[in-house]
Amino acid sequence: MFSHIFSSLTAYLLTSFLLTLTPGPDALLVMRTSITGGRRKGLGVVCGIASAWLLWGLAAMGGLSALVVVSKTGFQLLKWIGVLYLVWLALRMLFNSAQTAPMLNLESEALTGAGSPGPEPASGFWASWRQGLLATLTNPFVGLMVCAFFPQFIPPGSNIAAFTLLLTLLQMAVALVVFGSLVVLTVPLGRFLTRPSVARAFDWVTGLLLLAFSVKLALATVPR
């Protein structure tokens, strides 16, 4: 029994890492927030993403996420909420890029240690946490992964609810490691990435990619 559990968890972790490494709106949000807001806000988004995974896992244990996947109405409702949220994020980046570029010069000094920036308010972390939470919580394909992907790694005879919770906690750990590493790698590039011309280009590219993700989500149908 132990060997089955160990092999299932090993296979799950490997697959989970590969899926999390796949570029998506979460990774874009982590990178953009880390560039413009620094390490604290970047980690806020990462913690928000991990928190959303926990909520999806608890919903799966209660059967709610299964209802979203099976119910056409539930899937469509959550899908369009997710589309609107991605579009809002994208338009905010596209229209604010010109206005925020001058401010990014000041932020780049904070990211690279120049000047004497004051301590960042705690609200910055929690605002970013909410952003990461909503981005993942309004993605119906996360619910699909919990309902369709998790069961493949639950050994026969195991307690389904307990094992679902274990896989959820492991997915949270994977998200924290992968996206946390992305924050650590992105922040040192702050001085270059926050130059006005580079910042505007990055915001435009990120905004357009988020719009593309929103279109892809809008065209999605209930999985069979």
Rank of each mutant, 00 (worst) to 15 (best):
S97H: 15
R130A: 15
S65Y: 01
L67A: 12
N159Y: 00
G44S: 09
L111C: 12
Q152V: 06
L58K: 01
G62Y: 01
L77K: 06
T136V: 11
T33A: 11
K72A: 14
R92A: 13
L29T: 10
G82E: 00
Q152G: 08
N96I: 10
M93D: 11
K72N: 09
G113T: 02
R130G: 15
G157A: 05
F150I: 04
V46A: 08
A50I: 08
A66S: 10
E109W: 13
Y85I: 06
W129V: 08
A60H: 00
V146C: 06
V87F: 03
M61R: 07
A110T: 05
R39F: 12
L133N: 02
W53G: 08
E107N: 11
A59C: 09
S158R: 03
A50N: 09
S108R: 11
G143W: 01
L67K: 10
G118L: 14
A101I: 12
E109P: 00
V142G: 12
F153R: 01
G38M: 06
L77W: 12
L137V: 12
A98D: 15
F150S: 00
S51Q: 04
G63F: 03
G42D: 07
F149P: 02
S116A: 12
Y85G: 06
L111F: 04
A50F: 04
P119E: 14
F153L: 03
A135V: 11
L77Y: 07
W129F: 14
A66T: 06
Q99L: 15
A127K: 15
L28R: 04
G115S: 03
V146K: 01
P102E: 09
S65V: 02
L29K: 04
L67Y: 09
L84G: 15
L94D: 12
F141Q: 07
M61Y: 01
G118N: 13
L43P: 07
Y85R: 05
L86V: 03
L137H: 07
A52Q: 08
T100A: 15
K79T: 03
M103I: 13
A135H: 06
F75G: 05
A161R: 08
S71Y: 03
G44A: 07
M103L: 15
R92N: 15
P151C: 00
I35R: 06
S65C: 01
R40L: 14
W53N: 09
G38F: 04
G57M: 03
M145D: 02
A66R: 10
